[in-house]
């Protein structure tokens, strides 16, 4: 059931996920489209998530935005802050500066090379903010030869998380702590639970679909939502994922389609990255338990594969 409406307020609104936003020129959403989309969200009982660009919006926009309960997703920046109390701050790479808002979840968009190089900085950031979502923006390019390095990076982060746990803190790092907190899948569910409205007034499954092809829309506020083959976006129609217990995986339908041409099928690269995180999480849990009683109700089973495709015949 649809629950969220993501509104990209401007063509340069910050990307908070895998796909880079290629738009460089500012183009605000039409004020009428914004009003209509808010009205639509109210009528459909959708929670709105406003995604901001890195400049201050005109007051008339802020006034309209204020007519509905919403969350603000803003880019990291030291200049004009678009909103006073954001709900999520997005960092596009590491800036070297410390976060100002410590009680807010942060998204860190970073390349795998950036992560491999700056794992200590990422570890430090994990300790500084309420929650850190690391989004590896080129996950699809990981090779089997690079996986040991990724394991090493995760091990480094796991040591930091473990130390924090043992001092009584509860850091949240999506790559390592989400899986142990979840008792069911927590996928992105684009097109199932959330939908995106772009500045051109049209709906998209998620911002990435708008960034890569503006014609790839699924309706508009005026015409209504028109998702074709919506069942293929659901977990029960994903032959690999429905058997998988890597519940923190985003199951990104945009990456799926980019890599395999099908929204319901992940690539080898996505699967092995997510399974590497699962395995490190499993070991982290065991390591913490050696020192203290910790989440005794959680069990992450040991498995001998890193790509469910390899064991599909067993299902």
């Amino acid at each position: 059931m649809m629950q969220y409406l993501v509104i990209l307020l401007d063509d340069t609104s910050v990307s908070y996920c895998h796909c880079d936003n290629p738009h460089k020129e500012r183009r605000l959403i039409g004020l009428d489209d914004l009003r209509m989309s808010i009205r639509y969200a109210m009528m459909e009982n959708l929670m709105v998530q406003m995604v901001y660009p890195n400049y201050a919006l005109p007051q008339e926009y802020l006034d309209v935005i204020d007519t509905i309960d919403h969350h603000d997703i803003v880019p990291w920046g030291t200049g004009d802050r678009p909103v006073q109390e954001p709900d999520v701050v997005v960092m596009d790479g590491l800036s070297g500066e410390s976060p100002v808002l410590r009680n807010v979840p942060y998204v860190l968009r970073i390349t795998k090379a950036g992560l491999f190089k700056s794992v200590d900085a990422v570890a430090q950031l994990t300790q500084q903010v309420a929650r850190l979502n690391v989004v590896i923006t080129d996950v699809e390019t990981i090779t089997d030869a690079e996986l040991p390095k990724y394991r090493e990076v995760l091990d480094t982060l796991a040591e930091v998380v473990k130390a924090e746990y043992l001092t009584g803190c509860a850091p949240q790092l999506n790559l390592l702590t989400d899986r142990m907190m979840l008792d069911k899948p927590n996928h992105c569910n684009a097109g199932v639970e959330n939908i995106t409205l772009a500045p051109n007034g049209r709906f998209y499954l998620c911002p990435a679909f708008y960034y890569t092809d503006a014609d790839d829309n699924v309706g508009s506020v005026a015409e209504g939502l028109d998702i074709r083959n919506p069942q293929l976006l659901r977990l029960d129609h994903a032959p690999l994922c429905r058997h998988c217990d890597v519940w923190h995986c985003r199951r990104c339908v945009w990456l799926n389609r980019k890599m395999t041409y099908e929204v319901n099928t992940p690539s080898h690269e996505q699967c092995v990255m997510a399974h590497t995180e699962r395995e490190t999480t499993r070991r982290l849990l065991a390591n913490v338990r050696e020192k203290a009683t910790f989440m005794s109700e959680v069990e992450i089973k040991e498995i001998d594969y890193s790509d469910p495709f390899d064991v599909r015949k067993e299902w």
Binding site: H237, P239, L240, M259, T260, Y261, E262, T265, H268, E269
Partner: peptide
């Protein structure tokens, strides 16, 4: 490109 074969090789009747 083995990724492009994955949808074919996981395709089943029900889905």
């Amino acid at each position: 490109n083995q990724n492009l074969l994955r949808p074919f090789l996981t395709l089943d009747r029900v889905t």
